[in-house]
């Protein structure tokens, strides 16, 4: 154990893309949201999906990201388009019809726009959470001047969700191995999960008091300035990425209005 290796460990691991500071990633969400509101369409959906897939591959989070993005795509993206297309009450031009079922032009375009917005924002946030360690989030929240109590609550909530879902999986496995049905329709699942959820919540309530004492012992409630072991600075890569994002977005917006 030498100082240099410690410093190395305290630095962010991973490549350029996942190491972008949280603000850069949030800017990506904002830019895609703006573009989707202005130019949402079938082509936009294709492009934004391609962009996210490439980003997730580059950031080495493609497995988890793609799984969630695919669900998002099917359940929200596609659904929004279909629903809007079929159930368009206004008299508008029929784009395509097959027997009694017709797809209306106005509804189809509206569906595509809504779907674009959802996929952009949700996909962006998904990318954000997949690539941002809780530590980064914490430092970021602290940097924008939130009090340490609030930062703690936010971060601890994130952590405990991960911990709880881990424990939930364990319990579900245990139940399964004892022959209790845990898969199947909603009611079957609820029956399996509900008692466990109550136990989990109760146990976490009991430990809340001890947690408070533990934090007190670590001087969490002490007055005065704090320091941080991890310091994340906005790097040159972040600045370049932000400029590029701004330019692309601005360029597309301007081009869109001129053409």
């Amino acid at each position: 154990m030498d100082r240099q290796s410690v410093e190395e460990k305290l630095k962010r691991q991973g490549g350029v893309i996942e190491n972008f500071c949280p603000f850069t990633k949030l800017m990506l969400v904002v830019c895609t949201a703006v573009l989707s509101i202005l130019f949402g369409s079938l082509i936009y959906i294709a492009i934004i999906s391609a962009v996210y897939i490439i980003l997730s591959l580059a950031a080495h989070v493609s497995r988890d990201f793609l799984k969630s993005y695919f669900r998002l795509f099917i359940f929200f993206g596609l659904m929004l388009i279909l629903m809007n297309s079929f159930f368009q009450s206004n008299e508008s031009e029929v784009l395509f019809s097959m027997g009694k079922v017709s797809i209306y032009e106005e509804g189809f375009y509206r569906g595509c726009r809504m779907s674009s917005i959802i996929l952009s924002v949700a996909g962006g946030l998904l990318f954000f959470t997949e690539t941002t360690p809780i530590q980064d989030l914490m430092v970021m929240l602290g940097n924008i001047g939130l009090s340490s109590d609030i930062v703690y609550v936010v971060v601890a909530t994130f952590q405990s969700i991960t911990e709880l879902s881990g424990r939930m999986e364990q319990i579900l496995d245990a139940q399964r191995s004892r022959g209790i049905e845990t898969d199947g329709n909603l009611i079957v699942r609820a029956k399996a999960v509900l008692p466990m959820l109550i136990t989990l919540l109760l146990s976490s309530m009991v430990s809340a008091e001890e947690k408070a004492i533990a934090l007190e012992a670590r001087c969490f409630n002490c007055q005065g300035t704090r320091t941080a072991l991890r310091v994340y600075k906005t790097t040159a890569a972040d600045i370049i990425a932000m400029i590029v994002l701004a330019l692309i977005t601005g360029g597309i917006v301007v081009a869109g209005f001129i053409l």
């Binding site: 410690v6 305290l10 703690y152 012992a217 670590r218 704090r226 320091t227 072991l229």
Partner: peptide, 16 residues
């Protein structure tokens, strides 16, 4: 409950 390595966990009180 918010630190990702033992090293940082130990450092938490000193940060505070």
């Amino acid at each position: 409950g918010i630190k990702e390595t033992v090293f940082e966990e130990i450092a938490f009180g000193l940060e505070n």
